[in-house]
Simulated assay, not measured.
Amino acid sequence: MISFKNDYSEGAHPQILEALLTSNVVQESGYGEDSYCQAAAEILRKKLGNNAVDIHFLAGGTQTNLIAIAAFLRPHEAAIAAHTGHIFVHETGAIEATGHKVLTAEVKDGKLTPAHVEEILNAHTDEHMVKPKLVYISNATEVGTIYTKKELRLLSEFCREKKLYLFMDGARLGSALCSAGNDLTLSELPDLVDAFYIGGTKNGALLGEALVLCNEELKQDFRYHMKQKGALLAKGRVLGIQFLELFRDNLYFDLATHANSMAYKLRDGLKEAGVSFLSESPSNQIFPIFANEVVQELKESYHFEIWGKVDERHTAIRLVTSWATKEEAVTAFVKDIRRILQPQ
């Protein structure tokens, strides 16, 4: 079976595994105070062109979202997200479990705009309701779309005007930044958002996310929040080593570029076969629509996620490519689609 189910089915890039093995018996301090985490944070600050940001390494995306949002908000404050947002749909109520409500806006393309946020602000007017304080966005979004520089700047300016924190989920930030049509750079993000993270789990690392705190208000006591919620790893070096390898040269962006190129090859092949799509995604997630019987036939040879019904006879599926996706796997899928849809 070939899997297009997600971008974390494989382990880690060999360069990372080699670095973990080479450093295995080196004795280091714990809890992220080791030389590897310090070196990785320094490299990231150089890539960001910003020495003032705080950088913390955490194990996974849900953990990062949970700890960050819980730390940023006071008890009566709430987060705003798209109705497709990961914290609303796929994190088992993790944010709500900390006592913070997630307020959602219906969006067409996975992206929030100032108008979406303003509508929610206008509906929450006094102390009898939760107070919206944080805007959560994902880049790339859960439906594969990306924010342009203009879109992010407009949202950033609006949030600052309204005294809202802007927090970017970067689980697939590598794919977003390497996407066709992207005009954002990594170094521009600290000026546009209050906090964001650089996803390693879905871009070649064994595990790990690098959380970047840009706003001074959010930095104080953050390690206390990490420790209290079980995220201050005794062997934090494991995370630092991986980000050191990902950003020592250009590996992080090379891996994201490969994942995207495999998605484009897959998308173009399906378009040539007459397949339509649920969204126009420039990232490593694509959402083709097939007749229900075609989906059932594909399940015999491929793993993928059912995204949802389009109508009674058609279903959208999600295909995700990764740093390790082989071109032969893409070619095989396209060939099978042509065989199924265009029988001789």
Rank of each mutant, 00 (worst) to 15 (best):
A41V: 13
E42K: 15
K46H: 14
K47A: 11
K47V: 04
K47W: 14
K47N: 08
L48N: 00
L48A: 06
L48I: 08
G49E: 04
N50V: 01
N51F: 06
A52R: 07
A52F: 01
A52W: 02
V53S: 13
D54Y: 11
D54T: 11
D54I: 02
I55F: 03
F57H: 09
F57E: 05
L58K: 12
L58P: 02
G60K: 15
G60L: 10
G60D: 15
G61K: 08
G61T: 13
G61F: 10
T62I: 09
T62N: 14
T64H: 04
T64M: 03
N65R: 14
L66T: 14
I67C: 03
I67R: 01
A68Y: 05
A68E: 01
I69V: 08
I69N: 11
A70Q: 15
A70I: 01
A71V: 00
A71N: 14
F72H: 12
L73P: 08
L73I: 09
L73H: 13
R74S: 15
R74A: 12
P75K: 04
E77M: 10
E77S: 05
A78M: 13
A78V: 04
A79C: 12
A79G: 09
I80N: 01
I80C: 04
A81K: 06
A81C: 13
A81P: 06
A82H: 00
A82Q: 01
A82W: 02
H83D: 15
T84F: 15
G85M: 01
H86E: 07
H86N: 03
H86S: 10
H86A: 11
I87M: 08
I87G: 05
I87L: 06
I87H: 01
I87T: 05
F88C: 03
V89F: 09
V89G: 04
E91N: 10
E91V: 00
G93K: 09
G93L: 06
A94G: 08
I95Q: 00
I95K: 00
A97V: 03
A97I: 00
A97R: 12
T98N: 14
G99I: 14
G99K: 10
H100D: 09
H100C: 07
H100P: 05
H100S: 08
V102R: 09
V102K: 02
V102A: 04
V102W: 06
L103A: 13
A105H: 03
A105M: 11
V107W: 03
V107A: 12
K108V: 08
K108Q: 06
D109Y: 11
D109H: 15
T113E: 07
P114G: 13
A115C: 07
A115I: 07
A115V: 11
